[in-house]
Amino acid sequence: MTARNQNSKNPLHGLWALTNRELKKWYKEPIFLFMSIIQPVIWMGLFGKAMNIGSIFTSTDFPVPPGVDPQVISQQIMEQTFGTSDYFSYMSVGILSFVVLFTAMFSGMSMVWDRRLGFLNKALSTPVARGSIIFAKVFSAVVRSLIQAGIVLIVAFLLGLQLNPNFNVFNAFGVFAALFLVCIGLSSIFILIAIRSTRWETQMAVVNLLNLPLLFGSNALFPTKLMPDWLQTFAKINPITYVTDATRQLILFQTDVAQLTFDFVFLAGFALIFSTIGLMLSWRYLSR
């Protein structure tokens, strides 16, 4: 009995242990880190560079009226559409959201595996807080995606991302804060979907169903103002839109403070709502 009294009642003890378990699997296998980085880099490198939208206007033999410089026209159109004259810079920032989205999606998978392999039941038979079991998944997804996003950002810079001239430490901090918030919300959602599922196939199907709509129904790859109305409506409630806008403002554009504040309020609300639901439902469904 005496030995038991020394045991820590601090919920962070178990939370950290479970989070560290997830992270260990990841950093101990550099191949996983490499694989999780390589996919967004390929997207960015191939898609961003291949879709050389700026050159549509300059590389054609279309007879240009005299006195018009296609270079200038292209510059203006690009600026108006994307807010920057370089599509690669535009979409490589969008890829940061992509990294977070995909990491969050697969965090639900490990929940399904833990249930199948019996680890979940074992954890439930210990006094560890039920909420810790869920939040360990969320936090490990957050840590993973922030590190991956950081690496992808550096790669993008090396590949020719043109930073906003005023970019400083606070901007960098803001970028990670935005990614942090969206990752909390997204991984809570995907873990919630997984919480009662025993089949990884179901989880896979859900992930596959949701990833592309969430990605394309946002401004990650293309501005929403050029999209049809119904898609714009969807993009307006899609958190990916807000995280991409916030990061883009901080990395590429002259920061519009009002818009940026709204982005952060939306993201904070999103994170708060879904993590709260996650906590409540974990109580309900994990204690059967």
Partner: peptide, 18 residues
């Protein structure tokens, strides 16, 4: 994916053992 020792220590952490 963890070693035997890491697994036991993880269990210990779930009980809050220092």
């Amino acid at each position: 994916d963890l070693t035997g020792l890491e697994n036991i220590l993880l269990c210990a952490d779930l009980y809050g053992i220092p």
